[in-house]
């Protein structure tokens, strides 16, 4: 009988239809230093969706549009990060940022 009092769980896609996420590994030798962080933040800033990033070994999220916050993750070569975008252009943002990271920020 108690089960009648419980609300049906809201399907995740109902409220998170614009939320996209993707994991990617930092590949360039020097890691996510100032120039890559700047390239990431400026590309992230060109989208209207919000972009949050965290290291897979740390749940603390930073704003992907802030150079300073991106640098606070201290990602070295081999660090895996997760990018979460929320907004109408989330899919495009994730694809573009993934491409940027995988291209080693065009450093090598």
């Amino acid at each position: 009988m108690w089960s009648l009092c419980l609300k049906k769980p809201t399907p995740i896609h109902w409220y998170a239809k614009d939320l996209k996420s993707s994991r990617v590994v930092i590949l360039n030798r020097l890691g996510l230093h100032a120039r890559p962080a700047m390239a990431f933040a400026s590309m992230a800033g060109s989208f209207t969706c919000s972009i949050q990033v965290h290291r897979m070994d740390n749940q603390e999220r930073v704003d992907g549009k802030s150079v300073m916050q991106m640098l606070m993750m201290a990602c070295t070569q081999g660090t895996e990060i997760e990018m979460e975008a929320d907004g109408v252009d989330a899919l495009e943002a994730i694809a573009a940022l993934r491409q940027l990271v995988e291209s080693k920020f065009e450093e090598e």
């Binding site: 020097l30 890691g31 996510l32 230093h33 201290a74 990602c75 070569q77």
Partner: peptide, 9 residues
């Protein structure tokens, strides 16, 4: 490079 990243952090 990891020392530089740690200092920036």
């Amino acid at each position: 490079p990891e020392l530089h990243l740690a200092a920036m952090e």
